[in-house]
Structures are given as C-alpha cells and as structure tokens.
C-alpha cells in the first residue's frame, strides 16, 4: 500500500512538473485581418510555424495576406524561372491556407544584408497602414543564430514597422494617400528553438486536423524546392510530427509555438492598468 502511495505521489509530482513546463495555450485573438511578413516564398509553410495558425485564422473568418519580401531567384533549379515558379507556388500555398493574396516586394534574394533597413521598413509601414492588421506574424527579431541574412533583415524591419506605423511623423506622406497611422496590436514571432536560446516561445496556438492537412498541402505546394514526398506516409508525417511535438508542449494534439507580443507589452508600466481599466465604449 505504501508503495502505491509513493507511486501516486511520484505521478502527481511528475504531472505537476510537466504542467509547469507547459507553454501557455493562446486563445484565438480578436480581429479580422492578419499579415504574414517574411522573406521567402516558402517561409510561411515551414514545419515549425505559421501554416496551422494561419489556417485557423482563415477558418475563423480572418483575411490573411502574405508579404513575400524577396524574389527567391536562387531557390530552386534555375535563376530565371525560379522567380516566377516560386511566386506561383507561394500563391498555391496561400490558397491552401485560406489566405487571400501574396504581396511580393521583389527584393533580391539572399542580398538583404545590404538592403537599407529604412527602405524595407518603409514598405512594411505602408502595407500595415493600408491593411491595418490586427495580427502580424514574422521571424523573431531577437532570435539567435539564424544564419539566413534575409530572415534577420526582415525580422528587424518588421520589429520596427509594427509600432512605427502608429507614429504620424513617420512617413507623413502616407497621409496624403489616406493612409492613417496604425499600430499593430498583436505580433507573433516564430523561430526554430534549436537555433539558440534567443527565441523562447511564450504561447502555443492550437489547430485541428483539417487545418493540419492544409498546412501539409501548403508545405508541399513548393515543388520547385521540396520536390515530391517519398510516400503518402512521409508527406503526412512531415507536418504532423512537428505539429504534434509542439502540441505536446501545450497539452493539445497539434500546435505551433510563438513568442507573442501582446497588446500593451510595449508599455510595461501601464499594461496592468490598461488591461484592468479599459472598457467597451
């Protein structure tokens, strides 16, 4: 009997430990429009991020836009055709996810280190003011050891654009086109965790089997770089395995993990007060 008690106590201790390690499960955010701003044609469909959450938002009635920053000229078989083939496959992927459109900015692939940050940022600010997204998703600007120069540059530019779009004195010329200042209220950053300790997720976003299937379809839309899966099983597991692993971290079947910047995280001294005292009009 004593052994049973010990066993139960150990089990309880283990489950407490496991619960303490869980990444908090996020609720579906409030809003209707989201922008995914990344560097390449296939960044929004990779194993660890975005596709499942994007599909869930689309299912909930949100309108999503994918901002592809580079022209992807080097990704695939041949320089010339790569540009067009990768764009078309990105458009296919976006359709699978239920998003509306790919907005291609056409910066030179793998040359973003020398792209002027302010010019890239200015284009994002314009799009944020145009679409007024409730959510923006991108690479984590504070992630470590991502060796891709385009990812790093895009992340930095997005990290500034999401809040600077709210300042009227930043690109005041936009006002002449009717584009009012707008600060993005919620930002979700993704990154491989095994790149280093820079990116530590603080939220998990769950999605269902149908959304996982669409994430899988979106991933394999990129035939120019990913070819064809070895078997239907390999195709299924390619997205199911990482989604399940992330789901385990939050105690659900399938999920993707993010570092989320919440609505008032830019004002740490006022966050609690605003959350407590803001009320419906």
């Amino acid at each position: 009997m004593r052994k049973v008690y010990h066993g139960l106590a150990l089990l309880l201790f283990a489950s407490i430990l496991q619960a303490a390690d869980l990444v908090p499960l996020g609720q579906l955010p409030k809003g209707k429009t989201f922008l995914v701003i990344l560097a390449h044609h296939d960044d929004h469909t990779w194993e660890w991020g975005l596709g499942g959450f994007a599909a869930r938002l689309a299912d909930a009635g949100w309108t999503g836009y994918y901002v592809r920053t580079t022209n992807d000229e080097k990704d695939g078989n041949e320089w010339g055709p790569n540009d067009l083939v990768n764009l078309r496959e990105a458009q296919d992927a976006v359709r699978h996810l239920g998003m509306k459109e790919v907005i291609s900015l056409n910066w030179r692939n793998d040359h973003m280190s020398s792209a002027p940050l302010k010019e890239v940022r200015a284009q994002y600010i314009l799009l944020i003011r145009k679409y007024r997204p409730d959510v923006v998703m991108s690479w984590d600007p504070w992630g470590h050891y991502d060796r891709n120069p385009d990812h790093k540059r895009v992340a930095r530019a997005v990290g500034e654009a999401v809040w600077m779009a709210g300042l009227a004195n930043v690109h005041p010329e936009h006002l002449a086109a009717g584009l009012e200042p707008f600060r993005v209220p919620q930002v979700y950053y993704t990154q491989r965790e095994d790149y280093g300790k820079g990116h530590t997720p603080n939220i998990a976003m769950e999605f269902n089997q149908a959304e996982l299937d669409r994430k899988t379809d979106a991933f394999w839309s990129h035939k120019n770089v990913r070819g064809t899966p070895a078997s239907p099983e390999a195709r299924r597991l390619s997205m199911e395995t990482p989604s399940r692993e992330a789901g385990k971290r939050a105690g659900v079947a399938f999920a993707e993990l993010f570092y989320a910047i919440g609505e008032w995280d830019d004002l740490p001294g006022l966050k609690e007060y605003l959350q407590t005292n803001a009320r419906p009009k």
């Binding site: 709210g166 605003l274 005292n277 803001a278 009009k281």
Partner: peptide
C-alpha cells in the same frame, strides 16, 4: 502623444479608458 495614442488604440478596437 502617449496618452493620445493609447486612446486611439482603444478607440480603434471599440474601447475607452475613463481616465
């Protein structure tokens, strides 16, 4: 500017702050 931008952010999402 901070106060007005907070108010604007709340207004954009149908909220207000009594203060």
């Amino acid at each position: 500017s901070m106060a007005m931008r907070i108010r604007q952010r709340l207004e954009d999402t149908g909220r207000k702050l009594p203060l």
